[in-house]
Design a binder for these strands. Sequence first.
DNA 1: ACTTATCCCTGTGGGC
DNA 2: TGCCCACAGGGATAAG
Length: 321
Amino acid sequence: MPELPEVEVVRRGLARWVRGRNIDAAEVLDPRSVRRHAPGPDDLRANLEGARVLDVVRRGKFLWMPLVEAGDDAGAVPPFALMAHLGMSGQLLMEDPALPDEKHLKIRLTLSPATDTDGSPMPTELRFVDQRIFGGMFLADLEPTPDGAPGGLSETGMPLLPSEAAHIARDPLDPAFSFDEFYRRLRSRRTGIKRALLDQGLISGVGNIYADEALWSAKIHFARPTDTMRRADALRLVETARDVMTRALAAGGTSFDSLYVNVNGASGYFARSLNAYGREGEPCLRCAEASRTTLIRRDSFMNRSSYSCPVCQPKPRNGRW
DNA sequence: ACTTATCCCTGTGGGC
DNA sequence: TGCCCACAGGGATAAG
């Protein structure tokens, strides 16, 4: 279940392998993975072939690779982007072409030969594998960002942004993230705090796992109305979200099964560090320290599971938060 | 204009 | 053994 840390792990890995290389060939094995691209899969293939990858950029859970026509060093043609979203189960894998196709291989890019810093040959295939097909790829035009700030996290910090990702807010790890703006918009909402946390237009990168983890760490009930959030509450929540995602990033991401892997096919190790998510019926680690026996409960919320501690994250009976 | 519900997908696992 | 259903859930879009 890729959220910000997992997507950032993929972005960093991918950037190391593909920056500066040309796309020699593209192959769409399942047209359903070409999303939001009206001209269709064949147009996607035709535009990718012969393009050069400038960088790998992330904003929230969207990834994109700014591209130029190979050999267009004069910049005669404006850069465009190959957009990617991993959805629930998407993987971007760098692999040797000799490896057999994955069962759910959807799109294959063949890159120009390149050598690593130690002189060894780099893998030449970038494969998009996606079992549940909630993710996908498409082409987008790049526009200058309104404020001139980087369009997203990347090594080169290009101030270019696809319009399809322009509505995605900055994430808590983005240097351009503004808590003041987040808090102002949060207070103007008329909804619950977890729903707001999952709204990528308000704050990006947070999914169901890290939302539950941040709320648990900040001791906030998931249904608390956003307009009751005091500034200190919101600040604590953003800081816990930033903290848990930073630690997950350092651990290589969270993985419960083989669905999430980095570009080299390895899973992260953060799952063992979770305090709330997936721990229904297990003791709350915070309450246990206080010699209590409170158990983590699971609620159905927004058609998904919410894990929380009924003691640490209480819902007031009188309605006053 | 803003908030909420629905749908898109496939594999897994539990109940019967 | 096999069938059915719940579950996993990000995001676009329809509906309220």
